[in-house]
Design a protein around this nucleic acid. Sequence first.
RNA 1: GGCCCCGUAGUGUAGUGGCCUAGCACGCGGCCCUCUCAAGGCUGUAACGGCGGUUCGAAUCCGCUCGGGGCUACCA
Length: 487
Amino acid sequence: MTTPARTRVAPSPTGDPHVGTAYMALFDKAWSRKTGGQFVLRIEDTDRNRLVEGSEQQIYDSLRWLGLDADESPEVGGPYAPYKQSERVDSYRPFVEQLIESGHAYYCWCSGERLAQMRAEQQASKQADTGYDRLCLGMTRDERAKLPGFSPTPVVRMLIPDDVPLSFHDLIRGEVKAPRPDDQVILKADGFPTYHLAVVVDDHLMKITTVVRGEEWISSTPKHLLLYSWLGWQAPLFAHMPLLRNTDKSKISKRKNPAARLMWFREQGYLPEALRNFLQLLAYPPADGEQEVTSFDEFVEGFDWAKVSTVGPIFDVKKLDWLNGVYIRSLPTGELASRIVDYALESGQWSEIPEGGRELVLAATPLISERLVTLAEALPKLQFLFTADDQLVFNPVAVGKLKDNAAEVLTLAAQALEQLDEWTTDAIHQKLQTVLVEDMGLKPKFAFAPVRVAISGEQVSPPLFESMEILGKQSSLARIARLIAEL
RNA sequence: GGCCCCGUAGUGUAGUGGCCUAGCACGCGGCCCUCUCAAGGCUGUAACGGCGGUUCGAAUCCGCUCGGGGCUACCA
C-alpha cells in the first residue's frame, strides 16, 4: 500500500486566482485523500513586485467554494507553519550559506544591464547554449568591482556541474528528459529567494512527498533535483500535469480566456461541483465504459497517476455547460432554489430578497430546473412571476407572431377559466384543452400560444399551466384581459 | 536559435500489434415525445498530421519530417 502522501498547491497572490490553481489543487487533494495523507496550501509571495491586494483571500475563498480547501494553510495553520513564503525568508539564508561554503553556489555582482547585454549578444551570435557566462565565478567582491557592469548588491547563483543529471522519473510521464539548466539565481539582490530555492526548501521542510505542478516546470526540475542532492535531502515525487490551453493552443491566460479566472465560473453561475468534475475530466479522461460524471469521492477511489493525460487540453466551456446542467438537474428542489437565491444576491440580480421571493423561487424551481445551463439564467426565466400584472410587457415580437384569432381564443379561455373552482395545473390544463383544442378544434400549439404570451409576455416560457397555478387565478385572468385589450 | 514535452473527428478522449470497415462524451443535424423552450429517447455527421521502415498484419513499434506547446528572468 502507498504511504500517506503530503501534497501541496502553491499559488502566487498576484491577481485573481487562476483556474490552474484549482486544477492542480484537485489532483493534489485527490492524491492526498487516496493515500490518507494531507493536502497543503502554501502562498508563494516571494515576488514582491507583483503582489496584489486581496488576492490571497480570493485564493482561500475560491478553493473552499470548490471544496478543495487545504488541510494546512496560512488560514487554518498546521504543524509546519508559517505557510507563506514571505514569512519564511529567514529560513532560506542558512541553506544559501551552506551551498556557498560547499562550493555549489557563488556570488554574482553582474548588473541587470550587463546580463541583458550578454543575452542580446548570445542571441545575435545564435550561440547554441545561452545562459550566464560565469564572469563572477571565483572572484572576490573587490576583484569584480574593477570590471564593468558591477552592481554592489550581489545575487547568489547555482554552479551547475557538467554532469548534472537531466532526466528524472515523473509519475505521469515516466522517464522524462529536461534541458540543461544554466547558473540559476537562487537568492535575489533583495534578499528573497527565487522560486527554485524557496520551493525546494519549503517542500522539504514541510515534508511534501509529491509535487504536482504544471508541465511548464519540467525544464526546471533538474535544478530542483540538484538542490535536493546538494542539501542532502530526499527529493519528492513529481507529477507534471498537462497545461490547460486557450483556443489557439497557447498556455491558458486571463487575457485570451475569461475562464482562466477562477472567480469567473462563480460569477457566471456555474456549480462548483460541475467545475470540479470538468477540471477532472480535462486531465483524467474516463476509460472505456467509465462514467464521465463522477463525484470527488469516486474520483479519489479510482485515482491512478498513470491515467492522467499527457496532452494539454483546450479549455472548452461547452462541455462544462452540459455538465452544469447535469448537476443542476440532480440537485433537490430546495437545494437548487436556495442556490438560485444565493446567486441572485451574490451577483446583484437582487439587492435584497423581495417580499415572498424565496417562497416564489422555491415554488417555481421545478419549472425551470431542467431548462437551466447556469444559475444566472434562473431569475430571468422567472421574471414574469415577479412582475405586477399591470407592469408586464408583452413582447411585440411575441404578440406579432400570434394568429389572427388570438383575441377570440383568449376571450374563450378567460370565460372558461373564470368558472374554474379548482385552480391547479391539471384543472387549468384540462379546461383549456377542452375549450380550445377539443371544442374549437385548434392545434394545441396554436391554442395555448396566446395564453402563454398573456401570462409571460413571451413566446417562450416555463411550462404554462404550472406558471398559471403559481400566479393564481386573479393574476392570470387579469393578464389575459390586458392582452385582449391590447390586441 | 537551443533544449524539452506533445500530435486520434470542431472539442475532450478510448485505444498499449490482429477484437478498429476506429468506441464514448460534448457540440452540430434529423426524427420521436410535446403547451413553447428545455429535458428525455432514437439516429446521423465527422478523426488516427505526413513519409518511410519493422511485421503475415500498425492508430498502436522504429526513423525522418511537419505541426503545436513549454522553458531558455534577480516571474512563478
